[in-house]
Amino acid sequence: MHLNETDFGDAVPVEGYGPGFFRIGGQVHEGPVLTGMGGTRPWLGLEEEAPLLALAGHIDVLFVGTGAEIAHIPAPLRKALEEAGIGVEVMASPAACRTYNVLVSEGRRVALALLPV
């Protein structure tokens, strides 16, 4: 078997997560976070839509991790993101992390908004 190291380019993968935290690019971030090509930053959660809308034109898809279980995001938030041209995929945070890592490794224009598990 031959293993190849994954090249994430300028993006930083999610390396791990646990109760209340995410490890991204070797740093631990507590609470909700937003990550993508522009780096990783704290996020206030589903009520803070401005930084998500600022991604318009820079990404094609935003993965929203809703914690340990999949949950709906507020309809007005989904509508605003879609009207801004951002595709939205909602899933549990562990699945969102895995999906984001795969697509980032392929060079896709994606971002990740995460609520902790």
Rank of each mutant, 00 (worst) to 15 (best):
P74S: 09
L46V: 13
M1Y: 11
G20I: 00
G57M: 09
R78K: 15
V61R: 10
E49W: 12
V88M: 08
K79Y: 11
G45L: 08
A71R: 15
G45H: 07
G25L: 03
T66I: 07
H72R: 13
E5V: 12
A50F: 06
V61M: 12
G16H: 04
G38L: 14
L112Q: 02
C97P: 00
E82D: 11
E47K: 15
E48S: 07
A111H: 07
P116K: 07
A75I: 14
A54D: 15
A113H: 03
A75N: 07
L114G: 01
V64S: 04
L115G: 00
G65N: 08
L44V: 05
G39K: 10
Y17K: 02
K79R: 15
P94D: 06
R23Y: 00
I59N: 02
S105F: 09
P94G: 05
D7Y: 10
E106K: 12
V33P: 02
G20D: 14
D60A: 13
A113L: 03
A96E: 05
A92N: 12
A111R: 10
E48N: 05
L3Q: 14
A75C: 02
E15V: 01
R41G: 06
R23C: 04
A96I: 05
P74F: 08
T99A: 11
G18W: 04
P116Q: 05
I59Y: 02
E48D: 15
P51S: 09
A11Y: 04
V102D: 02
L112A: 04
M1I: 11
E83Q: 15
R41D: 00
G38A: 14
G36N: 09
D7N: 15
P42F: 03
G67K: 02
V14H: 04
R78S: 13
Q27E: 14
D10T: 15
E69T: 11
E106N: 09
L46G: 13
P19F: 12
M91N: 07
R108S: 10
H2R: 15
G85S: 09
I86P: 06
A68L: 14
E5P: 01
V61K: 03
G57D: 10
L53K: 07
V90L: 06
D7Q: 13
L53D: 03
L44D: 14
A54L: 07
R78Y: 00
P19Q: 13
P32C: 13
G85Q: 08
E89S: 01
P94F: 02
T40I: 10
A75L: 15
